[in-house]
Amino acid sequence: MTMQTNGITVSTATHAPLWRIRLRLAWRSFKSSWATFAESPVGLIGLGVIIFFGLFALAHPILMHTVWDSATYDPQMGYDMEIAFHPAAPSVRHLLGTDPLGRDVLSQLMYSTRYEFVLGILSAVVTVVIATTIGAVAAYYGGLIDAFLMRLADLVIMVPFLPILIVLSSFTEVGMFELALLIGLLSGFGGNTIVIKSQALSVKVKPFIEAARIAGGSDFHIIFTHLIPNLLPIALLYMMFVVTSAIFSEAVLSYFGLTTIKMSWGIMINTAQTQGYLLRFDTWYLLIPASLAITLLCAAFYLVGRALDEVVNPRLRSR
C-alpha cells in the first residue's frame, strides 16, 4: 500500500529504534511510580520487611552448605543428638531452640519462608490472570456472557472454603502447589473478578474504546491493548492483598492439618499443638517465631498494597 495518499510525502525517521524508546519510557514511568510509592512510609516499611524475608529465605541454602550440617539442622529430617531433651530452649547452637522432634526452629523458619513466597505469589498470579481476563471479558461483552460469569463468581463467593478443603484432602493430596492453585482459582473467580469487572466497565465506556472500534480493531485487540492494560494497576494492587490472604489461609489450613505440606509456618504451629506445647510460656520459641513471621509477612504485603493504592489512585492528582 502506498503511503503517498493525502498529499503527505514520506521522509525517513531519525530517532532510536522503537524497542529502546519503549524501554526508556517504561523505566521513566517506573521511576515516577516509585517516587509516589516512596512517599509513603508504610509502603517502605512493608517493602523492607518483604526484602528482609527474601534475604532470610535466600540465606537458608547458603547456611546449609556452609555452617549447618544437614544431619543436625535439616528442617525436616534433622535431629540434634547432643541435646538430651527436646524441645530445647534457645542456645548458641540453636538460636531459636529445637522443636519437640529435635529439629532446629530457626532452620525450619528460614526453610519455610521460600514456600510462603512461592505460595503467595503463585496464588496471586493465578488470581490476577483469571480475574483480569474474566472481568474484562464480562465487562466488554455484557449480556449473556456477563450474566453467566457473574453468577459463577457469586457461586464461588458462596463456596465454603474450609469444608471444600476437608473433602478434597480426604481423597487427594493437597500440597503447597495444589493449595496455591486452589486459593488462586477461588479468589480469582470470586470477589476479585467483581472488583476488576467494575473497573473494566468504567474503562469500557471511554471514547478511546470506540475510537479503536472505528479504526477496525477486533474484540481481541480492544480487550488486550486497551481494556486490560488499564486494569493492570488495580489488578496489581489486589494481587498484594491476595498474597496476604494466601499466606494466612495456608497457616490456618496447615494448623488444622488439612494439607499434606511437609514444612511451613503453619505446620510449625501445628507441630507445637499436636505435641501438646501450644499454650505453654516456657516453650514460646515453638509458637512465637512462626506466628510472628506469618503476621509480619502478611502485614508487609498488605502495607505495600496500601502504598500501591496511592500510586494507582492518587488522591492529589498533579495536573
Binding site: K206, P207, F208, A211, A212, I214, S218, N230
Partner: peptide
C-alpha cells in the same frame, strides 16, 4: 473492518478519547 478505513470519528473529550497508557 475494511470499510472502516473510509469513515473515521473525532471525539468531544480530548482527555478521554486517548488510551492514557499509550504514547
Amino acid at each position: 473492518k475494511t470499510f472502516r478505513r473510509n469513515v473515521q470519528m473525532i471525539f468531544q473529550d480530548p482527555y478521554e478519547s486517548m488510551n492514557p497508557r499509550l504514547t
